[in-house]
Design a protein around this nucleic acid. Structure first.
Lengths: 248, 248
DNA sequence: GGCGAAGCTTGACCCTTATCAAGGCGGAAT
DNA sequence: ATTCCGCCTTGATAAGGGTCAAGCTTCGCC
């Protein structure tokens, strides 16, 4: 129950009425009526193919999107075409929060595999959140959580060496996958070396070399996008000391 | 009017009833009654001396803080004592949003000069924002804005070279100071070289060297903490191309 | 099934920035 | 006014990661 609550406060598990009424909506203790209201607001889910854009920087902001299935990256582009990946997102996570501030999206969201999202029209969610205090609180927490996540990325980009970044990246993926019921130590990367590098502030060659090095040391196995974590403690050891004092 | 609105949506100009009733509260179009309600929630302002902590990472989160006067840094510390400055904040800006997600502050906030803040007890702001839709919307926008700001810092840390970072930093400071009615091209740095370096992912020596280089080129003058921007266009030139495509 | 493009690995080299070190300056406290 | 300490500058050196290049594998497309 407390464990359940813990994750429920941090992830947005949504089911669209049209998709699967069985799965619980926004697990923040809504009663039947409130769930009905929420259900009425959530739009039909949308499917995207690998490579497809969910939204682009500059487009007018209308909705948030919760990932039902699949995998996304968000990125900001600079004028000269350089791109910074700002996050990798998986099922249950929310995209588009950056768009609220200016009514325009400030980043791109791209599906890295065939995916399905629920659309949450923001103005309707906003007014609904006035009627449902726990929903409002949930949104504040979600946004705050995003801010904390970003701070931790800054810590990574500002302070950590290449090996530490890669280790932190692998462990973070592992942890989030296991939360979703997938194997923690055996997974397929959905993104390219270049995208990993962009996220971590490294070049793709450095990503490749570092993964090879970890493999040589027996800490992981690398078969293209198939990664296995063998000696997790060694990875954790590498980043102990450079992680946030509160431990994530 | 549109200019007025533009800034009003992005900054939180607060006056505490006890401090100065003249200055406008949260300029989001509140009527007299709403302003009264808000005023009742805002706690007496608190004064801090240079070096004093407003809150520390791990402390339980109760309130947001709006800066009335002064200058702050926020930073996260790693286990081994390394510190990453995550932001520099000046009057009208809001601190503590990171604390909402876990009910604990996830960073430190330190006054870099004698300062004064307004305390906004969060649960009371939260319930007030249910009664005042424009206030709720304002908070969503503020949080979103923080997310966008963080994304831009990631872009800086992930993609830019030392000179570009310093130039972006100086121009950002300049822009924010001029918004507040201070000189855009002649200001005093409130933070040390080390703190600048921490924020920008550089060592203090690199910060010092880069400032010296800019001075040699005649782009700026540096007299310890006193900075003058002489050839702003050269600085802008340096970062054109590596800035966000939307232009900040 | 074969072809081409994209993505990955690895090596060699070099550049940027970190590190180490020494000395100067200024401000705060006495 | 003086001293001490923190902060800053500058130089010399080193290392981490970027850049360039070549070759290989895989996957998607025809």
């Amino acid at each position: 129950m407390s464990e359940q609550n813990q994750t429920s406060l941090h992830t947005l598990k949504i089911s669209c009425s049209s998709c699967s009424l069985r799965e619980l909506c926004l697990p923040v203790g809504l009663n039947r009526e409130e769930m009905g209201q929420l259900d009425a607001v959530i739009r039909q889910s949308r499917r995207l193919k690998r490579g497809e854009y969910l939204f682009r920087s500059g487009e007018s902001f209308k909705s948030l999107y919760a990932i039902r299935t699949g995998f996304f990256k968000t990125c900001v582009a600079s004028q000269d075409g350089r791109e910074q990946v700002t996050g990798f997102l998986m099922s249950g996570e929310l995209m588009g929060l950056d768009g609220i501030s200016s009514s325009n999206h400030s980043c791109d969201a791209v599906a890295l595999e065939d995916s399905e999202v629920c659309e949450l029209p923001f103005t309707r969610m906003e007014s609904l959140s006035r009627d449902i205090p726990s929903l409002q609180h949930h949104f504040y927490r979600l946004m705050s959580r995003e801010i904390v996540r970003d701070q931790n990325v800054m810590l990574l980009l500002g302070n950590m060496k290449a090996e530490e970044r890669i280790a932190a990246f692998l462990l973070n993926l592992s942890q989030r996958l296991s939360t979703r019921g997938f194997a923690a130590n055996d997974f397929i990367l959905r993104m390219s070396r270049e995208e990993i590098g962009s996220f971590l502030g490294l070049k793709l060659e450095t990503v490749s070399r570092t993964l090879s090095k970890f493999q040589q040391q027996g800490w992981i196995t690398v078969d293209h996008k198939h990664i296995q974590l063998v000696l997790v403690d060694e990875l954790k050891n590498l980043i102990s000391g450079c992680m946030h004092a509160d431990g994530h």
